[in-house]
Structure formats: C-alpha cells, structure tokens
C-alpha cells in the first residue's frame, strides 16, 4: 500500500456534531486544489456526515480509518 501524503491534519477530537465537519470544511476552503486533509474525530455523527458532505461538495474521500478511540478521515480537495 502506498502512503498518502497528508498536507494538513485537523484534530477535531472532543468537538461535537457538527463541529468536526465544520472544521473540515474550513480546512478545505483554505486548502489548495489537490491538497489532502486528515480529520480526527471522536463524534459518531462524523461517520455519516463527513462522507455525505464530501460527496455533495464534489471532493474525494480517500479513506476512513478506525484508530485508537477516534476515526480518521482522509479527504482530497479536487476543485
């Protein structure tokens, strides 16, 4: 498996719904096209909300990983 280069990590652990999603959107707005953002979230709503928003906004969800006590979402800004 090739390692994905992450340009920015958004640690939204401890933030509640829809906090992590809003943190991600802010990071995407400030990122350049092609940049990859990782979001850490302990909010269970993120598991549905982040993939849904990424699809709606037309970006790319590279992966969702269950880590030790939190979920990591890897998102690429495509436009």
């Amino acid at each position: 498996m090739s390692e994905i280069k992450v340009n920015k990590v958004v640690d939204a652990r401890g933030s509640h719904c829809p906090g992590p999603l809003m943190e991600l959107i802010k990071a995407i707005r400030n990122a350049g096209v092609g940049e990859v953002i990782a979001v850490y979230s302990t909010d269970s709503g993120s598991k549905t909300d982040i993939p849904r928003w990424v699809e709606k906004a037309g970006h790319q969800l590279i992966g969702v990983y269950e880590r030790n006590g939190y979920t990591e979402f890897i998102v690429k800004k495509v436009k």
Binding site: L21, M22, I25, D49, W53, K56
Partner: peptide
C-alpha cells in the same frame, strides 16, 4: 445544531 449543520451542508 440544525442551523450549524445546514450551514455546513451549504
């Protein structure tokens, strides 16, 4: 929360 979520979803 609903207002925040809706704003986030555009």
């Amino acid at each position: 929360i609903l207002a925040s979520g809706a704003a986030a979803m555009g």
